[in-house]
Amino acid sequence: MGKYFFLIICGSMSNILNIFFYLDITDINSDFGTYFIMAASLAQPTFTSGHLVLLMQSMIPMFAFQIVYGVYIYKHFCCASVYYFSRQKNRTRWFIGESVKIIKYTAIFFASYILTAIAVTIGVTGDSKVVGELCIYTFLYFVLYNFVFCMLINLVSIFTGSQNGIIITYGIQMASVFVLNVFNDKVQLTGIPLKLFKLNPASNLVVSWHSSSGKLGKYINMFNIDFDINVSLIYFFVLSLIITGVGGFIINKIDVTLENKEEKG
């Protein structure tokens, strides 16, 4: 219970810090949806370096979470690996069980994050008409995105050690935000560039850049492009399945080494 409580507090604090540091909380003349987009979903209106830097700054709580849970599976390969895995009759089943636990912790953290954003939004705007769909999409995007990268850190760390796992995974995330800068007056969001934009994990993470024909449309659709909000959900879901599947396969094939990668000089 203590662990869950700590996660909830951290999730809540993460959102409060992001709102406090990066949001103009005096802008209260907005409805729930408009304010919530800014308070929770990493919305940035352009691809200038300034806005992309703000996007990266807002992702810092996510990176901190990924660093902590990026060693959740890896830790079993550090010490006592021989005694742990000589007892594991089915490593793949074990791996899937650990993956489910990571999803659980990710969900708790970001549920707290989103609920805090909802509370702040209602408190600031006075508008209690919660746009449930918006909250749910934001929550699912955050959970699946962070699950994918936590798992990636774990898998890379098993082979290279935790510091390299972080460097490589953080590098991928930073690069995926960095490349969005080309859409700032250099390249148009049409044709093949748009397809590449849709494959970029960072662009899939930001709810407000998506399009929706339903009532969500008035809160998102920032760039008026064909970028269906449901397709990104499927994209993250498929990525999650792939990483879990690949991880389960790799875990079964690797030799359990005696060396502790954290102890390598």
Binding site: A80, Y83, F85, S86, R87, Q88, K89, N252, L258
Partner: peptide, 14 residues
């Protein structure tokens, strides 16, 4: 995947 009932000690592993 592993021996069903095994007790193992490997040198220098903690």
């Amino acid at each position: 995947s592993v021996l069903p009932s095994l007790g193992i000690v490997i040198e220098n592993t903690g």
